[in-house]
């Protein structure tokens, strides 16, 4: 463990990446504490509410930070989250202007529906960090399995090799549509699945190449000469080597999947509204005259996430490299 960690931290910035990623995960987990339309804690009319932003009590169903603040009694108090707006509330506080530039009310301005950009940015972390790992998990499984099967025998290779090539050339947009069509509506899972279905062939190709290389290596040939079954060879000799390629790909893959999700949502084929996604903010930036406060924050958020994932990926690669 400690040797792995040492090797991991040898990669430049790997620890920084891990810290960044940790921060982002924390932000995603505690998004409701960072940006919510309900307070962290409040005392309203002799009632004490703890974390109503998470528990969402029925008594406050039609309230938000602004309306509560307006009707505070003499002994009441309210502790609002750093960003006192939810990601879905349109025109919180009764302001009807849309596309407000950053101000003391809305630190990052509002979008074209009068929603707070900072709140949507924070909650967008959830989408990015849900879709990325989901997509990677699916294609890791698929890619490794198919890549390994290719290495096992010529017939398998012939058929699956073709499948890989078909997958490699398949247009992403149709896949997404077909997947959307099979269920009633677009959802996060389908976006993840679509990304996975377009990415697995790339991984399968890598695994296959690695596996073929390993199969041709002297120690595998020796094992086969000694009568080891192909499955055993694949599991004992090939998989460990191939899995390092897979793990490295996975670490980098999360960042790529986040970029992918951004692109899909930007084109209008990604996560459905009103979910707060960074790609959606970008498409709003396009549709509303390239307002800088809609363009810059999601770009920075995406870049930070991708950089963090790639830095961690570098570390993982270093960690898995054969010492020496």
């Amino acid at each position: 463990m400690s040797r792995s960690w040492k090797r991991f931290s040898q990669a430049r910035g790997a620890r920084l990446g891990l810290a960044l990623l940790g921060g982002l995960i924390a932000l995603a987990l505690f998004a409701d504490l960072a940006a919510s339309d309900l307070p962290l804690a409040a005392r309203v009319g002799a009632h004490l509410y703890l974390l109503p932003c998470v528990t969402r009590p029925a008594a406050l169903a039609s309230d938000d930070n602004q309306s509560l603040a307006a009707r505070l009694g003499p002994h009441d108090w309210l502790l609002a989250p750093p960003v006192p707006y939810g990601p879905y509330a349109q025109h919180p506080g009764g302001i009807t202007r849309v596309l407000d530039p950053p101000s003391h009310r809305h630190l990052l301005g509002t979008d074209d529906r009068g929603r707070d950009v900072a709140a949507r940015l924070i909650h967008g972390t959830r989408i990015a960090l849900a879709v990325g790992p989901l997509a990677v998990a699916i294609y890791l499984l698929l890619g490794t399995l198919i890549g390994l099967l290719c290495a096992l025998g010529r017939t398998g290779d012939l058929v699956l090799g073709r499948a890989i090539e078909i997958g490699l050339t398949f247009p992403t947009l149709f896949l997404l549509l077909a997947i959307q069509g099979m269920s009633a509506t677009a959802s996060l899972f389908e976006v993840g699945l679509a990304i996975a279905l377009t990415e697995w062939p790339h991984l399968a190709r890598l695994v296959r190449a690695d596996a073929l290389k390993t199969m041709a290596s002297p120690h595998v040939e020796a094992a086969r000469a000694m009568g080891a079954s192909p499955v055993r060879v694949a599991l004992v000799h090939v998989l460990p080597l191939a899995s390092s390629a897979a793990l490295t790909t996975a670490a980098f893959g999360v960042g790529q999947a986040v970029l992918f999700e951004t692109a899909l949502t930007f084109l209008g084929f990604g996560v459905p509204p009103p979910l707060a996604s960074w790609g959606e903010l970008l498409s709003q930036a396009q549709a509303s005259g390239l307002e800088p406060w809609l363009l810059v924050p999601p770009t920075v958020a995406i870049a930070l996430t991708v950089i963090a994932c790639n830095l961690v990926g570098d570390g993982v690669r270093k960690m898995l490299e054969e010492p020496g």
């Binding site: 959307q180 509506t185 459905p272 509204p273």
Partner: peptide, 9 residues
Amino acid sequence: DVATVDWAV
């Protein structure tokens, strides 16, 4: 519930 579909659907 709000469901997003494309125009064809």
